[in-house]
Design a protein around this nucleic acid. Sequence first.
DNA 1: TAAATAAAAGATATTTTTGTCTTTTATTTA
DNA 2: TAAATAAAAGACAAAAATATCTTTTATTTA
Lengths: 142, 142
Amino acid sequence: MFSKTCEYAIRALLYIAQQSDAGHKVGFRQIAQAIDAPEPFLAKILQDLTRKGLLQSAKGPNGGFFVAAMDISLAAVVRAIDGDKLFSGCGLGLPNCSETNPCPIHQQFKSVRAQIQKMLQSSTIGDFNDLIAQGLVRLKSA
Amino acid sequence: MFSKTCEYAIRALLYIAQQSDAGHKVGFRQIAQAIDAPEPFLAKILQDLTRKGLLQSAKGPNGGFFVAAMDISLAAVVRAIDGDKLFSGCGLGLPNCSETNPCPIHQQFKSVRAQIQKMLQSSTIGDFNDLIAQGLVRLKSA
DNA sequence: TAAATAAAAGATATTTTTGTCTTTTATTTA
DNA sequence: TAAATAAAAGACAAAAATATCTTTTATTTA
């Protein structure tokens, strides 16, 4: 569904959002530990998210990552990392699949895509702060 | 959503099903042409599908690929090629995500997965024979 | 039985994704 | 201002997915 990169990005943002909510900046090592991601790979992803404005960073002592806007949708994150193939692409990979030129599963797929989009559009990175803080949901396995 | 391999596999099976329905065996070159897939790559996929029993093949003159069972579900095809990650995996990639140990989007994802599964389970490779024969749906772009 | 046909199998190549390591730049604070 | 801190940037490496090419095996038919 999502690329590994995108999975790490979402998990990282949810963690940083919760930490920001609690008033803390966090370094990438701490984030990597919290979401169980490879440190240098995650660092690249965080750089990318920062460049794209979904995340803020501060250098130097007491620096780290934090989020300024809790109302960024998960759809925006997915779009930033994986593009909008998930939201608009053909299920069978046809470049010019459309209503007038449909693949066999065009209609069925359209409705699946709509549900996915609805789900991702209606959740924001800040929506899970409390659940995460209370330990009711997890961002890593171990 | 699906791997490229899986997209080719579905498109190929739908084409072969329709051709079988019309009483024709088809060679892999013809299939590649009909669904716009790289010939040798497709050949590998067809071999795999044949080994797994989703497809039949005959060697020699007048040989080619054909399907014996029109009632194979698209879900079975996806499962054979991409495994059941799509049907049972965690949206955020957590290996042991579960009801009692959920990721933040566990419930939402569950419902999306159910809809995808329903869609793929309720369509078979033979369901599109007529639409394809009539040219009302497409298996390639050009 | 020989020739032609077509899939099967095996080896190899390319591209993309995922992951790692090192150096540089910016910021803070003592 | 110097030292420490932490992200940014760049080069590199490994693995997986995608794609290609050649040889072998099985089948049919003339």
